[in-house]
């Protein structure tokens, strides 16, 4: 299972890097979103995919999963939610002000 997940994470990373290298504002924004998904999956996978009950008080089971990576992933998801929404608004405003979403045209000249 870990190997399958690793391959999948690899694919997610590849796609996100491809999008990072594209020239459209929106694609780059999507790339950060995809990248964060890949990273979150990696965080879960690296700490071992265990089977067992959730570590809550009223669940009786033989084995419990490690709660820490889940807590970390939840935090990371919330953070990436905030960052992505900010980035979307920023990309939108940049598009409105500059009237282009081509990053080549957003390079800016050297002497300003």
């Amino acid at each position: 299972m870990e190997i399958l997940m690793s391959i999948m994470i690899g694919i997610v990373f590849t796609v996100s890097i491809y999008l990072f290298l594209s020239r459209s504002l929106l694609r780059v924004t999507l790339a950060t979103l995809l990248m964060s998904h890949g990273v979150h999956l990696l965080l879960l996978t690296m700490s071992g995919l265990q089977r067992g009950a959730s570590p809550f008080l009223n669940f009786q089971a033989d084995a419990y999963t490690d709660p820490l990576p889940q807590a970390l992933v939840l935090t990371a998801i919330v953070i990436s939610f905030g960052v992505t929404s900010l980035l979307l608004v920023m990309a939108y405003r940049t598009f409105k002000v500059h009237n282009t979403d081509d990053l080549d045209e957003l390079r800016g000249s050297a002497d300003e």
């Binding site: 504002l25 950060t32 990248m35 980035l87 920023m90 800016g108």
Partner: peptide
């Protein structure tokens, strides 16, 4: 000017943060 340059600043830092989580993992 701010919008154009800040977008790059944000993207670079988001990328770095993603690597940060990888390192933590």
């Amino acid at each position: 000017y701010q919008l154009r340059e800040s977008f790059k600043y944000v993207i670079i830092n988001v990328f770095a943060s993603a690597l940060f989580i990888v390192a933590i993992a």
